[in-house]
Design a protein around this nucleic acid. Structure first.
Lengths: 344, 344
DNA sequence: CTGAAAGCGCTAACAT
DNA sequence: ATGTTAGCGCTTTCAG
């Protein structure tokens, strides 16, 4: 059988409670350095590791947090991998475990099992980080109602006091659009992901703001939604290319979409940036190294992951929400080759 | 407070034991359909979810499996994302939870906490899938000695009876090399990851076999190790380019490395494939869409993930190891643009 | 076919 | 400063 706390207690000639105290490093030191040493030695000698379930049952803490990602988004793993990299670094520092929660919003009935709510209900998690645009606001509000600790990444529910860390995507797209306008572009296409996402709405606002600032008219026909599956981005790009008055530049809401767009543009015999300027979004690794190198908007992905995790642990351990619920980081325009030089 | 099994028992006017029986769907049906219905109704009405820790303590099962990935490999997330996609699909079907275990082989002392062994020792996991070339054979053998259920993906320990699902990488590189030889190449560079990995050794064997089959001499100077960090691949490529007798083609042990090589080749004013043919490995998503499109060896990544998970559940639930411990899938050469046409 | 009872390994009051 | 005593919520013999 496995080694239990009682084995350690016997070996160290103390009670199980004392072993528990020593191992849990209570603040109030009520233990002699002598006994402490004996306990530690015994634990090491027996190679003792506490049984997580037993501990969880008694303390109602699991030392685990979950990261919720949508099934659909598995394709955009570049974006997520960087965020998760940031998260896992902090998780390691705090000595917590990371649950991977893959949400399937299309799932019905028993398949809803995949959903993170299940893990919460089963008390498998002490907290949750949500990087999932697809989860409905209702579900997030449900979490809040239950007072379950969680933090949103790169999304928000306006008007609600919810912990989130995001990037100013309105500002990001504003910069990208203005960059193109300054290069002389007057007709700028915009291919975006699911329009109903808050994040995307913000981006659209940035796009429109840039246009109006420079006296350009907003044209509905220049904005294309590539939802629900990303492959649509290729088709949407072709739609833009076939417009009677074709745009001279295209902005996308992610580098991944930009990649599709790039392929579509080339396949249609046009050159980037000479015939069509292109700007991506996120500055995802690898993708930036396309030919031509992709101009994009750098989003501090890893930073978002780190900060969100720090906030989450703060909530879990100090019980209270943070003063400033919403953290908004700054995006940064990265000009490379694909946006080209001055035109017209 | 939360709803417990006793609340459900009271509501259904049965004992907690009966509730447990009904909810766990025991094979031996000892329950009246009447009581069963009452219990189910009560559980649904109260929105009952069993407490995972309590269940884990009593049954010594966690309904969780871990996936072990190395910290270093976070950069090659394209490769992993596809494998994990396969894993998560099966995990969802079996209604298990997925733990993300990020291993840090450089970590010493308490930081070793990040290591999956800790999770195993704490009984957080029912099983483990290892996609980690960096973990030492000793650690894997330790797992075996403990009779802890696990499956290896894309690696193996030759001579040991260990469950693993991989791809015939020797065959894969053999095909890639022969493809180039048939196009007329006689000096073929090979940039690979850490030489000591079993997987890489197999690849090297495939490379050498191809050469010898066609009467070509193996030259140590044409083989470059890009370890430990991948950015080295750029430098290694340049080393090949500066060789007195430069190769006319380069093979890499992953598409990710091929991407680095491609950049290096272009930066040095050479064209692919005209001046230098290039073949990648894995057929990772997105990367294949480079310019020029990358010839590569398709590895059934998602399939490996699926099969490994099926095997793991089989081990967990049926207690016994599989007859055939090692599953070896077939790679497939994918010829696109970067390997070019016939030369010489 | 169902219930009673014990116990999984740990934590946390409460005593001493 | 340490030990005693109850559980935490569930599963699982064992009786009936």
């Amino acid at each position: 059988m496995d080694i239990t706390i009682n084995d350690v207690a016997r070996e160290a000639r103390v009670s199980a409670a004392t072993v528990s105290y020593v191992l849990n490093q209570k603040k109030l030191d009520r233990i002699t350095t002598g006994t402490r040493r004996r306990v530690l030695k015994a634990a090491k000698k027996l190679n003792y590791y506490p049984h997580a379930s037993a501990r969880g049952l008694a303390s109602n803490k699991t030392q685990s947090i979950g990261v919720s990602i949508n099934k659909i988004d598995f394709l955009s793993f570049l974006y997520f991998s960087v965020i998760i990299g940031g998260i896992s670094r902090v998780v390691g520092d705090y000595d917590y475990n990371l649950h991977f929660t893959i949400t399937d919003n299309k799932a019905k009935g028993s398949r809803k099992n995949l959903f993170f709510m299940r893990k919460v209900a089963e008390r498998r998690l002490d907290g949750l980080i949500i990087i999932d645009q697809w989860i409905g606001d209702e579900d997030i509000m449900e979490l809040k109602k239950r007072r379950f600790p969680f933090v949103l990444i790169d999304r928000d529910i306006p008007g609600e006091e919810i912990n989130s860390v995001g990037t100013d995507n309105k500002e990001g797209i504003l910069q990208a659009t203005e960059h193109l306008i300054r290069l002389g572009h007057k007709r700028i296409g915009f291919i975006l992901e699911v329009m109903k996402f808050y994040k995307i709405k913000e981006m659209l606002a940035g796009y429109r703001l840039a246009l109006s600032r420079h006296g350009l008219k907003y044209e509905r026909g220049l904005v294309k939604e590539s939802a629900p599956n990303m492959e649509k981005a290729y088709k949407r790009t072709e739609e833009l290319l076939r417009l009677p008055q074709r745009p001279t530049a295209i902005i996308t809401s992610s580098d991944k979409i930009a990649l599709q767009a790039l392929t579509a543009i080339k396949d249609n015999g046009l050159r980037v940036p000479q015939d069509m300027a292109l700007v991506g979004y996120n500055d995802e690794p690898l993708i930036a190294q396309l030919e031509p190198q992709l101009s994009t908007v750098k989003v501090p992905l890893q930073e978002m992951g780190k900060i969100a995790t720090e906030i989450l642990f703060n909530i879990i351990n100090n019980g209270k929400m943070v003063k400033e619920p919403r953290i908004l980081l700054k995006p940064e325009l990265v000009v490379r080759k694909s946006s080209g030089g001055r035109i017209g």
